[in-house]
Write a protein that binds this DNA or RNA. Structure first.
Length: 273
DNA sequence: GTTGACACCTGGACGC
DNA sequence: TGCGTCCAGGTGTCAA
C-alpha cells in the first residue's frame, strides 16, 4: 500500500510524464472516488494545464492553472500513463485526456482512493489537508513537537499511524520504525521517555530516506507503474517476516494485532516494559 | 474530547 | 476443481 516513499516515487515518475499537459476531456467511470461536487470537478478540470506534481504525506497534489487535484491512493491506487488507443482495463476509474492523444488513467482495484479538486488558495486550509501533522523531514518535527502530540493514552503504533501526528507513515514503516527504535508497539504513547522519542525521530527519517532512495516497497498490492518496482522490501527487518529470525538477535519474528493492524515484532528487541 | 470499532472494497490465500 | 470464508489495510464516521 502506498505510504510516503511510494507516493514520492509515483510523484517523480508522474512528473516526468504529465508536466505541461493540457486536459481536454475526462471520463469518470466510478464516481465515488470524487469527494467534491462531481459536476464542478468535471467542468473545472477541462482546459487546465498541469504545472507541477507535488506531494504532502501520502497525498499527491497535481497543481493546475487554478486548482489542485488532490489524490490519495489509499490501498491500491495507481496512475497509468497511456495512449488514447490503449485498452482500458477493468479497474480504471478516471481518465484524464490530454491534447496530444495521451491519457492519465487512475486505476484502483479496491476503489478506496479519493480525489478532491480545490482552488489553489483554498487547498491547504480545507479538508482533506487542513489537519495533517508534520512529515519527519520537517525541521519542526522535534522532540518538543512529538512530546506534545504523543501526550495521549493510545498505543504508540496507533499514534504513529495517525496522520495528524506523523505525516506519511503507514503500517509497513511504523512496524520498521518501532523495531529499529526498539519500542514495543503496544507501549502507551505518553509513557515514552525523551530517549525513546528521539529514537523514533531518528529512525523515521532514516527509514523513509532509505525507502525513497530505493523507490519504496513493492508488495502484492503496490507498484508505481508497470515497469517500476520498489526495492525496499529487501531491507525490511520485521514486516511480513513472521517466523523468520530477527536480523538483530535471531529471535523468531512474531505477528500480533495492535489497533486492528497486523503488526510484526521481535519479542526480544521490543519489550513492552 | 478521546478512543476504539466498523465500513468501505476486492482479490488472493486457504480450508474443505 | 469449485465454493465459501477470512484477511489485507488508510481513513472517515460514529458510538461509547
Amino acid at each position: 500500500m502506498p505510504e510516503l516513499p511510494e507516493v514520492e516515487t509515483v510523484r517523480q515518475v508522474l512528473r516526468k510524464k504529465i508536466l505541461n499537459k493540457k486536459i481536454v476531456s475526462l471520463d469518470i467511470l466510478y464516481d465515488k472516488i470524487i469527494k467534491t461536487d462531481i459536476n464542478e470537478f468535471k467542468h473545472n478540470l477541462i482546459g487546465q494545464t498541469i504545472n507541477e506534481v507535488e506531494r504532502l504525506g501520502k497525498y499527491l497534489l497535481i497543481k493546475l492553472d487554478d486548482y489542485y487535484l488532490i489524490s490519495h491512493l489509499r490501498m491500491e491506487g495507481k496512475y497509468l500513463y497511456r495512449k488514447k488507443a490503449d485498452e482500458i482495463t477493468k479497474h480504471t476509474h478516471l481518465i484524464l485526456r490530454f491534447s496530444d492523444d495521451t491519457e492519465l488513467r487512475y486505476h484502483d482495484v479496491r476503489k478506496f482512493g479519493t480525489m478532491h479538486l480545490k482552488k489553489i488558495a483554498d487547498t491547504f486550509n480545507n479538508e482533506p489537508l487542513e489537519k495533517l501533522g508534520l512529515e519527519p523531514f520537517d525541521e519542526n518535527f522535534t522532540l518538543q513537537y512529538l512530546k506534545q502530540k504523543l501526550n495521549n493514552k493510545r498505543h504508540i503504533k496507533a499514534s504513529l499511524l495517525d496522520q495528524t501526528i506523523v505525516l506519511g507513515l503507514g503500517n509497513i514503516y511504523v512496524n520498521e520504525v518501532l523495531f529499529l527504535a526498539k519500542i514495543h508497539p503496544e507501549r502507551i504513547s505518553n509513557t515514552l521517555n525523551d530517549e525513546e522519542l528521539l529514537a523514533i525521530i531518528v529512525t523515521c527519517k532514516k527509514v523513509l530516506e532509505k525507502a525513497i532512495s530505493l523507490g519504496g516497497t513493492t508488495i502484492r498490492s503496490y507498484y508505481s507503474d508497470d515497469n517500476i518496482s520498489g526495492l525496499f522490501q529487501t531491507e525490511l527487518n520485521v514486516h511480513l517476516r513472521k517466523g523468520e529470525g530477527c536480523k538483530n538477535c535471531g529471535t523468531e519474528i512474531e505477528k500480533i494485532r495492535v489497533s486492528g493492524r497486523g503488526t510484526y515484532i521481535c519479542p526480544k528487541c521490543q519489550k513492552i516494559s
